[in-house]
């Protein structure tokens, strides 16, 4: 029983990070129709920046963490302005290929660039949390994991409220639903794109600094993360925020269960198997977006 609770909690922690990643991917995909293959590299880069700031330069953890996330978000804006934006024009299919190649190229650059700067050996981020677990109703909770889970939930909640209640949020949602109509009524869709790309990469970055604090940081960590985020997005239903969040937690918990009860080696396969199953039964995902995608 205790191990079960432990596994569910572990799953929720990882799932929270997946949900962050997937929400970021959904924003970028939903607004710009870009399948961002460099998403995991932004996640990796943020973790390395946190490592650099806190472990190498001695910046306090709670200062370094937002700096790392914001810097990667700024990089996201730059990428949108200088690269993604220029690929519009031509057919929809060409745009899909062009953005895929561009983000794949970017991911190669970032991944190998990180390897040049920080080397291939996994790094650990020193973090300020006590190592003794907190005992709560017989369940041992490691403080760092609790921090990850709570931070993710708070960020997701703030993001949700922001999207629903603020003007910027409403503008993003309007563009999300119908780009042409949004442009017609005078919304600055181009600037909204930049904001959204930055925001989306910041969510990946946040997942990166959080998981990087609990696990290790290495240049290739983004590859699998991108794939996982894709899985979550398709599980939840492409273009759906509630789906991305639910899908994230679902994948996290099912992976953790699979690792505990089936085999640790199968952990990474489980998500993709679930995706294939979901696609056969419900091709639009669990909580599909209302928007028609083609």
């Amino acid at each position: 029983m205790e191990t079960l609770v432990q596994q569910v909690l572990d799953g929720l922690m990882i799932g929270a990070a997946y949900a962050l990643m997937a929400t970021g991917l959904t924003i970028i995909f939903g607004l710009m129709d870009v399948v961002n293959f460099a998403h995991g590299e932004f996640y990796m880069l943020a973790a390395f920046l946190l490592f650099q700031l806190s472990a190498v330069m001695g910046v306090p953890y709670f200062v370094a963490l937002p700096v790392a996330v914001l810097s990667v978000g700024a990089l996201g804006v730059v990428v949108q302005r200088t690269l993604v934006r220029r690929l519009r024009g031509g057919s929809r299919l060409n745009y899909l290929y062009a953005t895929s190649i561009a983000t794949i190229g970017l991911s190669i650059v970032l991944q190998n660039g990180a390897q040049l700067v920080w080397g291939a050996v996994p790094k650990s981020i020193p973090q300020p949390f006590p190592t003794e677990p907190i005992l709560l109703a017989g369940v041992a909770l490691s403080p760092v994991r609790l921090f990850i889970l709570l931070t993710s939930i708070v960020v997701i909640a703030v993001l949700g409220i922001g999207l629903m209640r603020t003007l910027a949020g409403r503008m993003v949602r309007a563009t999300f639903q119908d780009r042409e109509a949004a442009a017609l009524i005078g919304l600055p869709v181009d600037r909204i794109d930049a904001l959204a790309f930055g925001g989306g990469t910041m969510l990946a970055a946040l997942a990166g600094v959080l998981l990087g604090s609990a696990f290790q940081v290495y240049p290739t960590m983004g590859g699998l993360a991108t794939l996982k985020a894709f899985t979550v997005v398709i599980l939840g239903g492409m273009g759906s925020f509630p789906g991305a969040i639910a899908g994230g937690f679902l994948l996290g918990v099912s992976e953790s269960m699979a690792a505990g009860y089936i085999s640790a080696g199968l952990k990474d396969a489980i998500g993709f198997a679930v995706v294939v199953a979901v696609l056969m039964i419900r091709p639009t995902g669990l909580l599909p977006a209302v928007r028609r995608l083609r």
């Binding site: 995909f29 129709d33 399948v35 929809r92 899909l96 895929s100 794939l227 894709f230 899985t231 997005v233 398709i234 492409m238 085999s263 080696g265 199968l266 990474d268 396969a269 993709f272 198997a273 995706v275 294939v276 696609l279 056969m280 091709p283 639009t284 995608l293 083609r294």
Partner: peptide
């Protein structure tokens, strides 16, 4: 399975099959 899907759905669905095959080969 995949030919019912279009656009980015198709991309990710086909990719999922590849990934399942990879893990089947390993396990």
């Amino acid at each position: 399975v995949v030919l019912r899907l279009r656009g980015p759905y198709f991309v990710i669905a086909t990719f999922s099959f590849l990934t399942v095959a990879y893990y089947v080969a390993i396990n």
